[in-house]
Amino acid sequence: MKIEFFHDVICSFCFPMSNRMRQIVKKYPRINVTHRSFALGWEKEQFIQMFGSHEAVKPEVLNHWEQANKNDDLNRFNIEGMKEQDFLFPTSKNGLKAAKAAGMLQGQDAYWEVFDAIQEALFINNRDISDIEILEDVISQTSLDLDAWKTQFNKPETEQAVLEDLNLVQSYGIQGAPALVIEGKYLISGAQPKEVIEETIEKIAKEEGLQLTGLQMMGSDADACRVVDGNWQCD
Rank of each mutant, 00 (worst) to 15 (best):
Q67R: 13
Y111E: 11
Q170I: 06
L212I: 14
D131T: 03
T213S: 11
N75Q: 14
M21A: 00
A205S: 01
L88A: 08
E208K: 08
D109M: 06
I134S: 03
F153W: 12
F47L: 06
E120L: 12
P90W: 10
S12H: 06
D8W: 05
T200R: 04
D72P: 11
N71E: 03
A191C: 11
F123L: 07
F153M: 08
A121V: 03
E55K: 14
S53T: 13
L96V: 01
I118W: 03
I24R: 00
P59Q: 11
D221E: 15
F47Q: 03
A98E: 14
F15P: 05
N154A: 13
D223H: 13
M82G: 10
N69H: 09
G209F: 13
K185F: 03
H54I: 11
Q49F: 05
A222I: 06
H7V: 09
G230S: 05
G190K: 05
V227I: 15
N19E: 15
G95H: 06
I79H: 06
E133L: 01
I139L: 11
G219A: 10
V9Q: 00
D221Y: 13
F51S: 07
M1H: 05
T91S: 08
I129Q: 07
P193H: 04
N75L: 03
K58Q: 09
F47W: 12
E157Y: 11
W42R: 00
V181R: 04
I31F: 02
T200M: 04
A99R: 00
Q49W: 02
W232V: 12
A39T: 05
L122T: 02
D128C: 02
I31E: 00
Q141H: 14
L187K: 05
F51I: 13
C225Y: 05
C234F: 07
N94Y: 08
R36H: 09
K100C: 10
Q175Y: 09
A101V: 03
S53K: 11
G230P: 02
H64M: 14
G184V: 00
L215N: 15
H7T: 06
Q119Y: 05
A110K: 01
T142M: 08
I197Y: 12
D128W: 11
E4R: 02
D229V: 07
L168N: 09
R36D: 01
R76N: 03
A177P: 12
V181W: 00
F153H: 10
V162R: 00
W42K: 01
Y172E: 08
N69C: 05
N71W: 02
N125D: 15
L144E: 15
P193T: 01
D137K: 10
A224K: 15
I10Q: 10
S189D: 13
L74T: 09
L122P: 00
A68H: 01
F15Y: 15
A102C: 09
S143A: 09
M218Q: 15
E195T: 09
E45L: 06
K27V: 12
M50E: 09
G190F: 00
E113F: 10
D109H: 14
Y186K: 00
S92V: 02
A39Q: 12
